[in-house]
Amino acid sequence: MTLEISHLTTQFGSVTAVDDISFTAKASEITTVIGANGAGKSSLLRTISGLEKPSSGSIKWNGRELIGLKPEAIVRLGVAHVPEGHAVISELTVAENIAMGGLFRRRKNRADLESASKEVYELFPRLEERRKQLAGTLSGGERQMLAIARALVARPQLILLDEPSLGLAPLVVEQIIATVNDLCRKTGLSVLLVEQNAITALGVADQGVLLSLGKVVADRPAKELRADATLRAAYLGY
């Protein structure tokens, strides 16, 4: 279950947000895409999940081309995207948000859907307590958990996480990242983690892809990236 991206380019008008990017996210690993603000990280994820149309290149998931598919079709192939900004629907309750994530499986596999939602609640007990609450009333961390839970209930093989740490307290970030790490190690879920917070991301990732101005600057094991003082200084500023 690998995701192979080759020569992917996405443009918005005259701006090239994703510029000839190639890398591979291996199965059951955490691949992190790091880089400064505006490096094209979010646009990359949005292109993978079908929200943006690339101008060229290819995205192969298990050998199957994803480009040209609608977002709703890509989710059905097991690639779930948790967009930036704790994307939940605030006017719906916690339970409805989670149910929404599994809607498309409700006819084919009802039993598995039920166990999937049970697992999700076990993973995030805080959400279980707040089932009936509107998502808009949750704290930032809880909303991020809900966004991830909504994606997980679809039982994806690959999850695309966009800046889960954005605007959250360090303790909450640690907890969320630990949960994701656990999931990957225990269930074999592949993770493509986009982060501005490179220290945290490289801390759990197997492979690190460093972006700058839409291009890949480095694609190496996370350990090596962490150790490379030159790259750190030049692109990450720590």
């Binding site: 079908g50 929200l51 994307a87």
Partner: peptide, 24 residues
Amino acid sequence: TGTGLAMRATALNQEVAKLSGIRT
């Protein structure tokens, strides 16, 4: 109903609905 939920979700936030696999 699930279809009702899908309709509400789509009306409220099309992007999240699509990413949840709802055929908008």
